[in-house]
């Protein structure tokens, strides 16, 4: 067989594999939705407890018609963006300070470890007492959850910057600030991006947790309200909307990552 034909066959095979994977993914979704709908139509599962695709869709449409949909999505999105932005900036600055002062990093090490492993939900009630039953509590909750892990992962990256590069800069008599700007920061672009990715999902957890505890608007509120009035349609609609929002933000950050990520 000629090399060209072999290559053609190879490409065809890859394409075929891709098609198979995507078709299976779509198929799973359709089968799940259709059987859920059929089973609830036939009365095999209780729609009062488990809802049905049709009802979820109807709920979302009626939310949209009453202008509630966009308000709830926007409130949650705003909280996520604020917490994510603040958390990332605070995390990176704090990591830089720890890199700067080995003494401080040694002193704070046990505290960071404890804070990191502590289930932050347990602080929920006290946060509400301190920050009030409003959006501040939600943002604080999300910050607590996301910032500590950002600090730790970015700091570890900073600490493992290529030693020879730092030695090289020192041989040019560089000061600590120059070492940070010229070597440490650019070396860790990829570390920072991947920690932001984790930070985003942590922020989601924090915001929804906060909204479940205290809120008047937002997707977390919708879910909480739905469960209180035993409206499972509303609960599942909230979860579905949340899933869509997460996916959009996730793909957005994936896109940014591909733009910024350096292949060395």
């Amino acid at each position: 067989m000629k090399a060209k034909e072999e290559h053609k066959k190879y490409l065809k095979n890859i394409k075929w594999q891709n098609i198979k994977v995507i078709t299976s993914q779509i198929l799973i979704f359709i089968v799940f939705m259709v059987s859920w709908q059929i089973l609830s139509d036939k009365g095999v599962i209780n729609t009062f407890l488990c809802s049905s695709p049709k009802k979820v869709l109807e709920t979302i449409i009626s939310l949209y018609k009453s202008n509630d949909l966009l308000i709830h999505v926007w409130v949650t999105l705003k909280e996520i963006l604020i917490s994510f932005g603040l958390g990332s900036i605070i995390g990176i600055i704090f990591a830089a300070i720890l890199w700067w002062s080995p003494f401080l990093s040694k002193v704070l090490d046990p505290y960071l470890t404890i804070l990191n492993s502590l289930p932050k939900v347990s602080l929920g009630p006290i946060i509400i007492i301190w920050a009030g039953a409003n959006q501040n509590s939600i943002i604080l909750m999300a910050l607590l959850i996301s910032t500590i892990s950002t600090i730790i992962s970015v700091y570890v990256g900073f600490k493992h910057t290529n030693k020879t590069s730092i030695k090289l800069l020192k041989s040019f008599n560089a000061n600590k600030f120059q070492i940070f700007i010229k070597a440490v920061l650019p070396y860790n672009i990829n570390t920072i991006i991947s920690s932001l990715k984790i930070n985003l999902s942590m922020t989601f957890v924090g915001v929804i947790m906060g909204e479940l505890l205290v809120s008047k608007q937002g997707l977390g509120y919708l879910i909480n309200y739905g469960s209180q009035v035993f409206n499972t349609n509303l609960v599942i609609a909230g979860v579905v909307l949340l899933g869509i929002l997460t996916s959009i933000l996730y793909f957005l950050i994936l896109f940014i990552e591909n733009k910024l990520k350096k292949e060395w």
Binding site: T164, K167, L169, A174, I189, W264
Partner: peptide, 25 residues
């Protein structure tokens, strides 16, 4: 100084890498 590893910065081009010491000083 010249090291075992060339320690060239991958995000800088050849000219900028060569200018590194001068920039710092």
């Amino acid at each position: 100084y010249m090291f075992q590893e060339d320690a060239l910065f991958p995000w800088l081009n050849v000219l900028d890498n060569c200018m590194l010491g001068l920039k710092i000083q």
